[in-house]
Nucleic acid binder design. Structure first.
Lengths: 228, 228
DNA sequence: GCAAAAGTGTTTCGTATACACCCATGC
DNA sequence: GCATGGGTGTATACGAAACACTTTTGC
């Protein structure tokens, strides 16, 4: 029998969060080679022999942009046979979350540039292949997942104030949240631990918190329901 | 450059619901050929040239079991390079929902048998390839999705009683629901339309309802949040 | 003093939950 | 009559939302 085979690619939508001003960003690279040379695209590349999709995503992310994400998961697989002009390329898309401040992206082999781009800007941009569609799916997933999973913390520095956290949620969800109620709700979850240090800014000093992974694991074991 | 290519397969976890006794079932076929000849597996097969994954899933489902599902979506892509002993086969797994009564599965080319199997039984069974893992992922997805999306209706006949619907939810979620509160909650959503007919069973006649797709679409447009 | 954020407290309201209770049917 | 499900109603409690108010800092 004559069975068609496909090239496998792992692409990664990397989200980052910049607190000042509050901005949700994605990592875009400028393609050095054809097809779509010079166009903006997500980092990604071929899956190698003996490698599964997630391993390929991590490797590509490190090679192309020097990034080792705190969070990475498979998003969706894009299989339109015409999505790549060269022939059948199946893209197994991933979502990754990083602390923007930790990585100033470095352009790797296939990229002439790598930049953090405001998500709203990226949505208006013409992207290579079907990457615009991939971005839409990734955003939907992020907005959904952030509501019942504590993945937001992977976008913040280890220590953060409640204002940081609230700004993050407001940015992702695209709506303002009541500061007072947000504080009570989040603290009531018992997933934050105070850090013995204050944030000194332009205003009244604020308590610094860290995400309490241990408390979270305990809560998960007890059949637990995270909600914003 | 020497780029590895992979065979692409579309596999489908088809869920069905049998009201009496309330049972959540999956469709399993007995493999006619090696590898795993004689083992139970999900229907599926190769994606053909010019075909995307979802089209392949629909085609395979029809060819192998005579089923045209009311609901079908991509689930997850399984990429372990060792998941198939013959070489690299990437499985793009799907979830489908059907009304059990509408399809008595027929065994197609690759299957010597096709049967509805109680999900709990299937979970204890040894399945071909990594299909046991696929089933776990599919079940998690179904349980999650049923809570905020009205996909449950795709598992019921066009007309159903509130008891049918409650039994369905109780079976999927694995816990008893208060009949009175369930009624109020579901009716308050305004997604059910009364049918001008009663269900005559062994007890007091019950109102028959149908899923009101029009009302649902209207609700979705208004930025709507479905909950059990 | 003023602006901006930190932090506490209160009131209101909707709705989830837990039941009590009556109705209608087949056996 | 009795079991079973259909269907209505109610009391309670908890949590979400709205918002008033005080505190603390930099400028």
């Amino acid at each position: 029998v004559n069975i068609e085979r496909s090239v496998l690619a792992a692409d990664i939508v990397v989200f980052g969060f910049r607190p000042e001003p509050p901005t949700l960003e994605v990592l875009l690279i400028k393609r050095r080679y054809d097809p779509f040379q010079g166009a903006w695209a997500f980092p990604g590349g071929h899956i190698e022999p003996g490698e599964d999709a997630e391993a390929a995503a991590r490797r590509e992310l490190y090679e192309e942009a020097g990034i080792q994400p705190g969070y990475l998961e498979q998003l969706y697989t894009f299989t339109d046979p015409k999505r790549d002009p060269r022939g059948r390329v199946t893209s197994i898309a991933h979502v990754a979350l990083v602390r923007t401040d930790q990585f100033s992206p470095t352009a790797g082999d296939d990229a002439s540039e790598a930049h953090w781009v405001d998500v709203r800007t990226a949505m208006d941009e013409v992207l290579a292949f079907d990457h615009h569609l991939i971005l839409e799916v990734a955003l939907t997933r992020l907005r959904g997942k952030v509501r019942y999973t504590p993945i937001g913390f992977d976008l913040l520095p280890k220590q953060f104030t409640l204002l940081d956290l609230r700004r993050l949620y407001e940015t992702i969800l695209g709506k303002a949240l009541d500061a007072s109620n947000f504080r009570k709700k989040v603290l009531a979850l018992g997933l934050l631990a105070e850090v013995n240090q204050m944030h000194m800014g332009a205003h009244r000093p604020a308590t610094l918190y860290r995400f309490d992974k241990r408390a979270y694991d305990r809560a998960v074991k007890g059949g637990f329901n995270f909600e914003v």
